[in-house]
Write a protein that binds this DNA or RNA. Structure first.
Length: 486
RNA sequence: GCGGGUGUUGCUUAGUGGUAAAGCUCCAGCCUUCCAAGCUGGUCACACGGGUUCGAUUCCCGUCACCCGCUCCA
């Protein structure tokens, strides 16, 4: 049932997220801080569910993938080896006349000149002009270092400089040998990690989509050289299936296959998985075949061997890697956007069908508005809400309370006894709780409750003794395909 | 970073050079035998910092944040 023909605006989404406690602005009482966001009670639970689903799919259900939790701050040489210290600091030039901005090296290259490197930074050679307006009034090249810099220890000098990791992947590469030696894995196998990463984005935008602090879920899957392409295809397929398993419809997702000229020099293939956000098709995840670039670089920079000995073929090689790298916050935002629906439902007297709400138009006579978040039950923050039909009847309240406490042991549940029952259902609709359980007078006679479905608003009577089983089945994540073990 | 817009309570809005109103939400109570009903009461706001002024939420300047477009996107 799709009842929102028109995509909600980002503002509508942000308003609901704040109102219901999914997402707040960071440091809001101080005016906020650009590029940082906090997750409220429901957002924290939603993110937890995303991480759990990913971990279950990538690590728990696969014999040949193991987990890791590396530190955020690593030895600064890690970022020299990874290329982030150099590559993350592209000097930029602004045109004072027409306000265009360029990468200094690209601007020089266009005009067949060479960017001059100085002791302190960069300098434009003579004769460089703005491509757009031909003005010579350009700013000096300014380095935008996109890594957050900090100092380890109390003394802030050059020898104590360190960086907040701009990606979690390097922690995996750096521990490759340790993990290999303790996990009894053989190529092909993977190491997975979830954690925070930090990038000093020039221009954070689109709500939480491009933030300066964000959370990644990354898998480095190590394969025998020459098998990169087939494993890359495999992981693209696996990842597309996972997105659908958490409730993103196939038609809202699109793989973007990088053409050769857009690939990094060491990569043999890269596919982004895009989601149809209110602000356009944007990436949730990138799946790259990176060859042996990372392990080889760390071998060079550390002087430690990253070679793997393949006992079956008696070969020694540095494994190649396929890297599915996903953003938790982007997935959370996609799930929220996808879940949001407004509809007009007939009130009791009128009857008739549920209508999709038309933005900006008044609710028609005989109908009332409903906002409902249609999260997939397996990722909904709250799984069930338990209500006594009336709060001034102690026997109902007591019975319902007992049911709440028994279900609460298994899932995040919500207790609500205030106001009319309809109001309580609607409240839960707006936070996407898939099930409402109501204790009424019949419950006291036959020990059944009503189980109300969020999407259809239909109710059925279920024996209290069957509730856990019913919810268990309904909330189970879809069966996921995990055939990496061959 | 550039240009445009916005900023009054949780949300949507009103309003004023003399410190602010309403609806919804929320909370408490009453009532209520299944979909935002009703009654009574209650909490909560002029983004931040300067300036002008006897007095600024209102006028001026600056800052911050968010939205849109451009730019950027390792």
């Amino acid at each position: 049932m799709n009842t929102s023909p028109v995509k909600p605006s980002l503002e509508t989404i942000a308003s609901l997220c704040k109102r219901r406690g999914f997402i707040f602005q960071s440091s809001e009482i101080y005016g906020g801080i650009n590029g940082f966001w906090d997750y409220g009670p429901l957002g924290a639970q939603l993110k937890r569910n995303i991480r759990d689903s990913w971990w279950r799919n990538i690590v728990q259900s696969r014999e040949n993938v193991v987990g890791l939790d590396a530190s955020i701050i690593m030895h600064p040489r890690v970022w020299e080896a990874s290329g982030h210290v150099g590559g993350f600091a592209d000097p930029m030039v602004d045109c004072r006349a027409c306000k265009k901005r360029y990468r200094a090296d690209q601007l020089c290259e266009e005009q067949s000149k060479q960017l001059i490197k100085t002791a302190t930074g960069f300098q434009l050679p003579d004769g460089i002009v703005c491509t757009a307006c031909k003005s010579k009034d350009l700013t000096e090249p300014r380095a935008f270092n996109l890594m957050f810099k900090t100092f380890v220890g109390p003394v802030e000098d050059g020898s104590s400089v360190a960086y907040l990791r701009p990606e979690t992947a390097q922690g995996i590469f750096v521990q490759f040998d340790n993990v290999l030696s303790v996990s009894r894995q053989k190529v092909p196998f993977g190491i997975a990690q979830i954690g925070k990463a930090f990038r000093n984005e020039i221009n954070p935008r689109n709500y939480t989509f491009r933030s300066r602090e964000f959370e990644q879920m990354e898998l480095e899957f190590f394969v025998k050289p020459g098998t990169d392409a087939e494993w890359h295809t495999y992981w693209v397929d696996q990842r597309m299936k996972w997105y659908q398993s958490i409730g993103l419809p196939a038609e809202s997702l699109k793989p973007y296959v990088y053409p050769k000229e857009e690939l990094a020099h060491y990569a043999s293939a890269c596919v982004d998985i895009l989601y149809d956000f209110p602000f356009g098709m944007q990436e949730l995840e990138g799946i790259a075949a990176r060859g042996d670039f990372d392990l080889r670089r760390h071998q060079e920079f550390s002087g430690k061997s990253m070679e793997y000995f393949d006992q079956e073929t008696n070969e020694k090689y540095i494994p190649h890697v396929v890297e599915p790298s996903a953003g938790v916050d982007r997935i959370a935002l996609a799930l929220i956007c996808n879940a949001y629906h407004e509809e007009w439902i007939p009130n009791g007297k009128t009857g008739g069908d549920v209508l999709p709400a038309e933005p900006g138009k008044p609710v028609p006579e005989g109908y009332e508005a409903r906002t409902v978040m249609r999260f997939h039950p397996s990722i909904a923050p709250i799984k069930a809400a338990i209500f006594p039909l009336l709060k001034n009847k102690p026997e109902l309240v007591q019975k319902a309370r007992g049911i709440y406490q028994s279900l609460n042991r298994w899932w995040p549940c919500f207790w609500d006894h205030t106001g009319a029952i309809g109001r309580r259902y609607r409240r839960q609709d707006e936070i996407g709780t898939p099930y409402g359980i109501t204790v009424d007078f019949q419950t006291l006679e036959d020990d059944t409750v009503t189980l109300r479905d969020r999407d259809t608003m239909q109710q059925e009577r279920v024996p209290v003794s069957k509730l856990i089983e019913r919810l268990h089945d309904a909330l189970l994540p879809p069966l996921e395909e995990t055939s990496t073990n061959g």
